[in-house]
Nucleic acid binder design. Sequence first.
DNA 1: TCTGGGGTCCTAGGACCC
DNA 2: TCTGGGGTCCTAGGACCC
Length: 409
Amino acid sequence: MFYTFFGDIMERQILHIDVNNAFLSWTALELLKEGATEDIRKIPSAICGDEQKRTGIILAKSMLAKSFGVVTGETIYQAQRKCPNLKLYSSRYDAYKRYSDALYNLLSEYTYMIERFSVDECFLDMTTFLMGDTLLAKANEISKRVKNELGFTVNIGLSNNKMLAKMASDFAKPDRIHTLYPHEIEEKIWPMDVSELFMVGRKSAEKLYKFGIHTIGDLANFDKKFIERKFGKQGTMMWEYANGIDESEVVYKYEKSKSIGNSITLPMDVDNKEKIESILLALVEQVTFRLRKEDRLATVAAVQLRSNAFKDYLHQSKLEFATSNTDTIYKAAKRILSEMYTTQYPVRLVGFRVDGLVDTEDSQTSLFNTNTPKNDALDKTVDKLKEKFGYGAITKAGDMNVNKYMKFK
DNA sequence: TCTGGGGTCCTAGGACCC
DNA sequence: TCTGGGGTCCTAGGACCC
């Protein structure tokens, strides 16, 4: 509920905007810009990783590819079996960032209460920004403008809260506007499979099926206490979502990230600690570079290893003091690796992330902070060179072969 | 099924302190 | 010390999202 200063209770007016096949549409626009004669949105096509690098999965697909049964997340091999004429394209993250920013800027003209939920999704709280229009009229205008000015289509969901608006934008695609107001829940989403509900993933769905809960309606009408006993906080949320309840606000103030990480699937399994260390160094350099760019310090370091059997191991350790120094953090990373590393399994993926981030100015100087000004000055110099000549220009990562596997930002 | 990469949040158990 | 319970911090793992 939203209370105005007049004291009456106003229903919130929320829009959820979702770009249709974002990576594919944006790649299509780039290709057309480069002179392509064919619009890949109009043929069976997909954006995917690289099989040689063992990252060969489908990241996005065209409507036609979808009609052949191609789904996001499956392997290229599986997709091609369903759709032999599937045309494949690799991702272009720099371009995606540009289109995402353009969309955000356009939407910002409608309200400052805007939340960037992901690279291709935004929530807008329009409650006090309708200016005499209906929410639907605004949605129509946004839809047309995005299509005409930016060249791609979006789905828009309308409701009184974020969760319902998001569920609505996921109805029939592409280029559609849907409402999902509380009085429409029973008709529109209760018949749907419970796995379709936001925040009900594969594991929760399987568990719900065992209790005889198959549809969102089943869940909505089930005993709330029972669901809470079985699923904890997650259960409370699921039950409330099934009943259309969501009080969360559009988070329009810039929120800083709480952790920063990078990981890399290796082209082949590695069973050698020195090799993993050199990969780790490249990752630490990349992560601390991003950390310093955001002007933040880390208090926790974490190393991730994925076995060739696809089991993940994540070990973390609190740092002695908040820092963004490459050397200090790399030493911690090596220590963590030593603690967790065994030769029991070949390693398929190495990841590194920092957590418990604090602002540089907020951090208390620790007596044990052995960061010398010299260390920090070195980081700064290296960062500047990276900004100027590109990330790959200068790196401490000893084994340069590692760098060719990394995606530089 | 031979399975990306970047995040957030929650839970549970152990250590430690009072 | 044979022993209780609460609070907090830390870590590992898991679920979910895009």
